[in-house]
Design a protein around this nucleic acid. Structure first.
Lengths: 252, 252
DNA sequence: AGTCCCCGTCCCACGATGCGGTACGACATG
DNA sequence: CATGTCGTACCGCATCGTGGGACGGGGACT
């Protein structure tokens, strides 16, 4: 079936506005459309609430309407609330800090963090975002990506946060293969010197990966000698418990 | 300037899909449009990723594209991260539990909660949602609404969670007037028996209300005798500190 | 098994709507 | 003051979107 050109153009304009383009002429240039066409589509999107002008200017930003349609904030807040008791229990069990990161495009964002019991701690990263390849939580999320998404991500230059950050695409692919096999991932001093992290994904009731649950600590004591496998097992086990199915084996 | 009918229709369809309507015929009926028109617009939205079919069926759901455009999860997670140290400090200062609620349509959702020091505590409400009129945080958010939004909300039957919940529209209007004057709000045993809450809104750098910061405790000890005004002052002061402007008086 | 009903898809004729060029006023800059 | 750029409004045109209707598929019912 054919599609509607005007609607496709409207979404193109929304993408440019979302990406920061803000005036009629700028958007027309980027979208390769006549100004009058862009102006008319902008007026339509504005009347719908999909975009809004900034004050009296001719600069546009996304408006409230799309957020109203999507409404995902509630789900993420509930997810964080559901995960946090597990983070607290795990922090007591391991004696180290724990955290939960949610995917956000090709980054992951630290959504919740619980301190361990030691005086020497990992600082609070709550709210901060990292490229997906930088550290165990993100690599665990990447293991859930399609091949196409992974290829696209690895085709671009990747930032190294420390000299230990794995940035070579082939090495990233290999460790993703390991994550897919083992269900968890260790990273040492990759997003910050002196910090080690082990992560596993939290899956929702329907099996979709919602984020990564992890523990971290100073590399000099975490993991303790011979503890890495046991700690990884606790991480995987805790991640599975967040949305554990009933004992009869499944959801209906 | 004129607007583009096809784009308006596409958004109408998105609203019906978002609200749960799922098939061509159902949406056509609700939107009062011919089936072929709806089918073509659905096909366009599907090709854009704005909606997606559920498996091989003809049921539609919102697709990932809109969430990608909006991307508000990051902002809320960052907001929660920004607020939490203030909640922790305030909980220590007051000796009672504190919390932060974000607006979600005509409800408010408890986004973060910190326990007080007492053995007798308010239980964890993290993630839970309440109608805006039920309790201090929501009433503070309502004080930010336009008159039209307020009229619309008050025109419908309002749930009472306890016999103390204020559900009479005129009384709600009066207390909103008080919030607008005083900048904070007390509520006693309105969303749950035995719990008192005092709240004030947290404003972003540009003055927009982002959510409500509050303290709560068992009504028998909170507030202490003669403490209500002082506690309210601490709540307002803490709320203002979350995004305090520089000392020169403003943002530029 | 046959019939009926409803759904979603597709096709096509038609004209309404969207397109895009252009002019103009407002504003910023030198 | 001159110039350049922007956003808006207008208008002629024809392309694109509309909507009626046919059709095949699938499910329900007898």
């Amino acid at each position: 079936m054919s599609t509607v050109q005007s609607v496709e153009r409207a979404f193109t304009i929304l993408e440019y506005v979302s990406a920061g383009a803000s005036g009629v002429t700028e958007i027309a240039g980027q979208a390769q459309l006549p100004k009058s066409t862009v102006a008319r589509l902008l007026a339509t999107l504005e009347s719908l609430g999909a975009i809004a002008r900034v004050g009296d200017s001719s600069e546009y930003r996304l408006g409230p309407r799309l957020a109203e349609l999507v409404g995902p904030v509630d789900a993420t807040v509930q997810l964080i609330a559901a995960v946090r008791p597990h983070l607290e229990r795990l922090a007591l069990q391991l004696g180290e800090g724990t955290g939960f990161a949610v995917p956000s495009g090709s980054t992951v964002q630290v959504a919740s963090q619980v301190d361990g019991e030691h005086a020497v701690q990992v600082r609070d990263y709550s709210g901060e975002m990292f490229p997906a390849h930088v550290g165990a939580p993100g690599v665990c999320m990447m293991a859930e990506w399609s091949d196409a998404d992974l290829d696209r991500y690895l085709a671009r230059p990747l930032a190294g946060y420390t000299e230990h950050t794995v940035v070579h695409p082939q090495q990233i692919r290999e460790r993703i293969a390991l994550v897919r096999r083992d269900g968890s991932c260790w990273a040492h001093e990759e997003f910050a010197l002196g910090i080690s992290t082990v992560a596993a994904v939290v899956r929702g009731p329907k099996g979709r990966a919602l984020g990564s649950l992890y523990a971290h600590g100073p590399t000099y004591r975490f993991p303790g000698q011979g503890d890495a496998d046991w700690i990884a097992e606790q991480i995987r086990r805790t991640a599975q418990q967040v949305f554990a199915p009933p004992a009869d084996g499944g959801w209906h």
